[in-house]
Structure formats: C-alpha cells, structure tokens
C-alpha cells in the first residue's frame, strides 16, 4: 500500500483546515502553496483561513507537511446531530 497521500483513495475528498494562531510564526509557506485558502494577515502576520477553508485532502496534507511550525491541521468533521 502506497504511503503517498496523493495516491490514497480519499486524496480528492474535500477537507477543512484550521490554523492554530498561537503556534503560527508567519513563515508563509501555506500562503505560497495555497493562496486561495491561506493568507498572512497584514497586521498580525499570522495565517488566517480565507474563503471556505476547504481543499483536497492530498493538498491539505502537503501544506500541513510544509508548515514548519505545525500550526495547520485538518478540522475534525462536524459531529452528527441527533435526531429528536
């Protein structure tokens, strides 16, 4: 089984990503790789999610790997609402 995340069966699935503002040090690799998802805030130099904040899982894994501070992660899927 390949370890390459871009080849995984769920590589094309859309996932949501989040940035931990405390950990982010404003290196900017995320913004460079995925400018439709990440931008460094002009005033705080911290990465913020712009737009929907979703992208293909394989691309999310790549940008997470490239973030040197480890501030980016995939958001947990929303918990199902119980039926009343």
């Amino acid at each position: 089984m390949s370890d390459d995340p871009t080849q995984a069966a769920d590589a094309a699935d859309e996932v949501f990503v989040v940035v931990d503002a405390q950990t982010c040090i404003g290196v900017g690799q995320c913004e460079m790789l995925e400018p439709n998802v990440f931008a460094l805030d002009e005033d705080t130099d911290i990465a913020v999610i712009i737009g929907e904040g979703s992208l293909a899982r394989s691309r999310a894994v790549t940008v997470i790997d490239r973030c040197p501070s480890g501030a980016i992660s995939i958001a947990p899927p929303p918990s199902p609402t119980p039926s009343s």
Partner: peptide, 19 residues
C-alpha cells in the same frame, strides 16, 4: 515560545516567500 514568538513576529513579514 511564547517569548520567541513575539520577537520573531517583529520581522517575519519581511521574510515570507511572498515578500
């Protein structure tokens, strides 16, 4: 961190890939 983080942010904007 967190002292490091505050200092680094003073200059980090000048060194991002975009800048």
């Amino acid at each position: 961190p967190p002292v490091h983080t505050r200092l680094r942010r003073l200059v980090s904007a000048a060194f991002t890939p975009r800048h």
